[in-house]
Design a protein around this nucleic acid. Structure first.
Length: 455
RNA sequence: GUGGGUGUAGCUCAGCUGGUUAGAGCGCCAGAUUGUGGCUCUGGAGGUCGCCGGUUCAAAUCCGGUCAUCCACCCCA
C-alpha cells in the first residue's frame, strides 16, 4: 500500500478548518431561521431519472453515477457494450447518482411530500453536492451548498426577502458584497425588441461574458451565434441603460419586457425604506443560470471597492422558477430561492482575514499532574470542572512537565491546572494563565468562578 | 471535455547548461532548564527528488506516459 490518498477534488479538513466552516454554516443557518425557513435533508444519492436532463447536456456529463451493486454486467446493455457506447451502457449499469445541486432534489421532495407540507413552504438545506467537474481554485468535486427556497407562492415579497437574507448574512460575515438583480423577462423582452427572440439563449450566453471580454468580445460572440449587427447595436443600447426607468422605455413594445420591469419595480418597492448594508444593483447584463429561471435572478459578487485586489467569481446566486415542480408532474407550484457558495466564501474570509478570533478554541483548561497519585487526584478535579460545564481535559500521563506544558501551548488552551503534591494536600491546584504566565493556587470553586468569568 | 504551468524533508521553497554523501528557512525531537510552555542557544532525526518507462558511462536535472495540483477556456458555487 502506497501513500493513502483521496479522490480528486475532495478534501480533508483539519479541526481549525471545520470550525471556520461551521462558523459560516451557523451564520447562514441563523439568518435562514430568523426569516422563517425550516431545515430539510435529502439523500446524497438520487435516482438517475430524477437527475438526468435537469441540468442540460453539460450537467448530465458532470453527474456522478453509482455503479449498480451485484452482477451489474448481467443486466447490462450488451449492444451498447459491444459498440463501446459508454453513454448508453451507463444507463443500464447505474440507476443512481450523486445529487448535483439542492434545487432539483427539493422539487422532487415537494412533489413527494406535498400532502404533508403547507404552502408556501420555506425550506433551507445545507448539504454537500457532487460534480465531476475539473477542479480549480474555489471549485471542487464535493462541496457544500447552502440553499433557501420558497415553494408555492408567486409573491414578489420573497424576492425582496431573499435580498435581505443575502444582505444580513454577508453583513454578519463582515464581507462587503454587491447583490445584483435582473429579470429573465427583461432579457426576453430585449431579445424581442431586438428581433432575436429565437436566439435568446445565444444572446444571454454572449451577454454573460461582458465583464470578461468587453463589448467588442460580446458583439463578436453574438456575431458568431448568428445575431446580426443591427440587433447587436440595439441590444448594446438597451444593456447600457443605467436605470430600470430608462430600460422600461426601450422595452415598452414587449409585453414580456414590461412584465419583467414591473416585477423588478415591485421587488424594489418592497425594499424601499429598508436599510441594506450592501449594494443592491439592477444589472441588465446579469444573464447567467438561466436554464430554469423564469423571473428575477440574483447574483452576489465581492465588492471590490471595499476589498481591493480580490479575484473571485460569484459567491451566491438564485432566482425565480415559475414551474418548480412541473418536471415531476406537479403543476402550478412556483419557486424562488438563493444559494450561498460556502467554499468560496471560506476562501474569501481566509484571504481577507475575516474569521473571528477564538474560533479554534473550545478546551478551556488542561490538567497537568506530576506523578501517579496527583494524576488520579487531577482526574477528579477535572471531572468536577466538566460536571460544572467547563470544557476540561487532563494530560494522559504524568510525564515531564515541560512536555505537558508544550502540549498545552500547542493546542492553544488558555488555562492550565497544575496538580502536584502540595496542591493535592492543600486541595488548591495552581491555575496558570497561558497568555500572561501568571499562576496562583485556588480552591475548585474559585477556579470555577475564574474560568466562568473568562468564558 | 480542451490548452498550459508546477510536482524536491511535515510546510514554504533553492538546486545553472546531466557529474561524487540533495540543501535552506520554518516545524518536529533532545539538551542547556530533574515542578513550568512561548524567547534564545546547542545538537539531532527526517527525502522511493509524485509514479512508471526511455535516452546516457552517469538523471532531481533531458524525453515520453501517468497521477496529483494550479491557471485559462467550457460551465458553474
Amino acid at each position: 500500500m502506497s501513500r493513502p490518498s483521496i479522490p480528486k477534488g475532495t478534501r480533508d479538513f483539519l479541526p481549525a478548518e471545520v470550525r471556520k466552516r461551521q462558523y459560516i454554516f451557523d451564520t447562514i443557518r441563523g439568518v435562514f431561521e430568523t426569516w422563517g425557513y425550516v431545515p430539510i435533508e435529502t439523500p446524497a444519492m438520487e435516482l438517475l431519472e430524477t437527475l438526468l436532463g435537469k441540468y442540460g447536456e453539460e450537467g448530465d456529463k458532470l453527474l456522478f453515477r453509482i455503479l449498480n451493486n451485484g452482477d451489474f454486467l448481467a443486466k447490462a446493455d450488451r449492444e451498447a457494450l459491444a459498440q463501446m457506447d459508454s453513454q448508453r451502457l451507463a444507463l443500464s449499469i447505474a440507476r443512481r447518482g450523486l445529487r448535483y445541486d439542492l434545487t432539483v432534489p427539493f422539487a422532487r421532495y415537494v412533489v413527494m411530500h406535498r400532502h404533508e407540507l403547507s404552502l408556501p413552504f420555506k425550506r433551507y438545506q445545507i448539504q454537500p453536492v457532487w460534480r465531476a467537474d475539473r477542479p480549480q481554485k474555489g471549485r471542487y468535486q464535493e462541496f457544500y451548498q447552502c440553499d433557501a427556497d420558497v415553494a408555492g407562492s408567486d409573491s414578489l415579497m420573497y424576492e425582496a426577502e431573499l435580498v435581505q437574507i443575502y444582505d444580513a448574512v454577508f453583513r454578519k460575515l463582515g464581507l462587503k458584497v454587491r447583490i445584483k438583480l435582473n429579470n429573465r423577462k427583461v432579457l426576453a423582452g430585449m431579445a424581442e425588441v431586438a428581433g432575436v427572440a429565437d436566439r435568446f439563449t445565444d444572446m444571454t450566453v454572449a451577454i454573460d461574458k461582458l465583464d470578461k471580454v468587453g463589448w467588442e468580445g460580446v458583439r463578436a460572440e453574438m456575431e458568431a451565434r448568428g445575431i446580426g449587427a443591427e440587433a447587436q447595436q440595439r441590444l448594446q443600447a438597451m444593456l447600457e441603460a443605467r436605470s430600470v426607468e430608462a430600460l422600461a422605455e426601450a422595452l415598452a413594445p414587449s409585453q414580456t419586457g414590461r412584465l419583467g420591469i414591473e416585477e423588478l419595480q415591485s421587488v424594489l418597492a418592497y425594499l424601499d425604506g429598508i436599510e441594506l448594508h450592501n449594494a443592491l444593483l439592477f444589472d441588465s447584463t446579469l444573464a447567467r443560470g438561466l436554464s430554469y429561471y423564469t423571473g428575477c435572478i440574483f447574483e452576489v459578487v465581492v465588492d471590490t471597492d471595499a476589498h481591493p485586489g480580490v479575484r473571485m467569481g460569484s459567491i451566491g446566486g438564485g432566482g425565480r422558477y415559475a414551474d418548480l415542480t412541473g418536471i415531476f408532474g406537479l403543476k402550478g407550484v412556483s419557486g424562488v430561492g438563493i444559494s450561498f457558495g460556502a467554499e468560496r466564501i471560506y476562501d474569501l474570509l481566509e484571504e481577507l482575514n475575516l474569521f473571528p478570533e477564538g474560533l479554534a478554541r473550545t478546551l478551556q483548561v488542561l490538567g497537568i499532574a506530576f506523578d501517579e497519585a496527583t494524576h488520579r487526584f487531577a482526574f477528579r478535579q477535572i471531572s468536577a470542572l466538566r460536571q460544572a460545564g467547563i470544557a476540561a481535559d487532563l494530560y494522559p500521563e504524568p510525564v515531564k512537565l515541560k512536555k505537558q506544558m508544550k502540549y498545552a501551548n500547542a493546542i492553544g488552551v488558555p488555562w492550565v491546572l497544575l496538580v502536584g503534591e502540595d496542591e493535592m494536600k492543600t486541595g488548591k491546584p495552581a491555575l496558570k494563565n497561558m497568555h500572561t504566565g501568571a499562576q496562583s493556587a485556588h480552591t475548585l470553586s474559585e477556579i470555577l468562578d475564574i474560568l466562568r468569568a473568562d468564558a
